[in-house]
Design a binder for these strands. Structure first.
Lengths: 249, 249
DNA sequence: CGTTAACTTGAATTTTGTCAATGCCTGTGG
DNA sequence: CCACAGGCATTGACAAAATTCAAGTTAACG
């Protein structure tokens, strides 16, 4: 994060191979674009809109969601500073992107973005790596939604966002939770009430303490990890293969 | 989509321009590799294995899954002929790939695969497009798991696989279902019993008829679509924005 | 043709959702 | 800076959906 900014600031949009020390980065691509601000609750784009631009989150948090025909909402992800939104080959956005907090973003025309990516053998693997990370996150979310209990979901979520903003991948003790209970519920496939009940339960067991409505303090980090159901499975093939036999019910 | 290809075709990072008629394809990359066969129930690779190779499915169906520490299984996808498996920048596979039926695959060393992709401005957008499709599918699956009822899930699944194998994107009347109820359950985030009950209900309502254990006939295609809960939401932004007001409960 | 795993069906239980009432932050305006 | 309004969040009682447990069936395979 720290180094990214300095690199970005130095980038000169070189077409010819940059022999110098600095290398182009995805952030660098956006760094010359003006910053745009959106108020909390406003949409950057809607599902189904012409997908003209790619966005980089500079500040704040957004929710990415889809809506079913009858109004059911599913938040497929929250986007934080440094994240890219709208990268796809489809000509229409597949989801709505909406500000959770007041946000700042930079915008890049999609076609030019594609050209830059295609031109640069430095940028391409960076973008590829991001897509792979996004895919891995999507798979983890499928695991959560398909098989985890409400409590495991909430704990997984708290761990996820606690790891989201810190530099070291170290979970923070004080965790900012900018989203509402409804956002959490729509992300976790639960109802507001269930999320609320579980937060209360975690509080009364001393695992977390609320710190206002939009932050918590993690008091028992290891307990939270256990409750998240992320106990690392051993990677022994035979154990995995025979899981039905090993855990008979 | 359309424009992407032309952009790619015009791209000048080509080392040796292939002026001839035939253009490289991802399939083409694999076509010189020997075919390997796996029996139903055997794994091509395990989650956590060194990610040395990328695979192309030539024949049959595979399941891609992850296992939680206590044995709960989540199938994140089924792979059909033409699909690529193991494309990622991680050095270990993120999931297990196991044959549902007897399968044929071709294998390509990952490093060489990366080199070929990097070398070829024709191949790159093809791979990118596949990753985007995979991402879109993952998001649809999150919607299914987060907010759809058991019946909607089963119907969505039947529609999905009915569209899977045919050339025209036309749903087939007779749908092969190579996977077991347990596979379906672990893909849909349900239990075998629930899947079974819903299949029975669909049958008794005349929506489908079973044709042996591993095929069904779709008798009321439109009904199946409705039950899948995929009634297209209108893409009117204000309608989407105010969904809580429009559907009050 | 028989064996066995896969599937179906039913009853009881659990989990989560729904509905409704109350409580409490947070941001606004005085 | 404080008071207050309104949106969020919490809590409880009840309902619904899906899971669990427990038999039975059936189809696929040797």
């Amino acid at each position: 994060m720290l180094s990214q900014d300095s690199i970005a600031a130095v980038n000169h949009f070189v077409r010819q191979v940059p022999c110098e020390a600095e290398r182009p980065t995805l952030q660098g691509l956006f760094s010359r674009q003006p910053i745009e601000k959106f108020e909390a609750g406003t949409a950057v784009f809607w599902e189904g809109d012409e997908a003209d631009h790619v966005f980089e989150v500079v500040e704040g948090v957004l929710r990415i969601y889809k809506i079913l025909g009858d109004g059911r909402r599913v938040i497929t992800g929250f986007m934080y500073p440094g994240d890219l939104i709208g990268v796809s080959l489809k000509d229409r956005y597949l989801y709505t992107a909406e500000a959770v907090t007041r946000i700042q973003v930079r915008r890049f025309a999609r076609q030019r973005f594609q050209e830059e990516i295609n031109r640069s053998p430095e940028l391409r693997p960076q973008l590829f790596a991001r897509l792979c990370d996004e895919m891995a996150a999507a798979q983890d979310q499928m695991v959560l939604l398909a098989r985890k209990s409400a409590e495991e979901r909430v704990c997984s979520f708290l761990l996820l966002i606690s790891r989201r903003l810190d530099r070291d991948g170290q979970a923070l003790r004080v965790v900012e939770v900018p989203m509402t209970r409804l956002d959490m519920a729509d992300y976790l496939g639960l109802t507001i009430e269930t999320v609320s009940r579980i937060m209360t339960r975690l509080t009364s067991r001393g695992v977390i303490s609320p710190s206002g409505r939009h932050a918590i303090i993690v008091r028992k980090s290891d307990k939270l990890t256990t409750l998240a159901g992320e106990v690392e499975a051993d990677h022994n093939p035979s154990a995995a293969y025979t899981h039905q036999a090993v855990w008979p019910n």
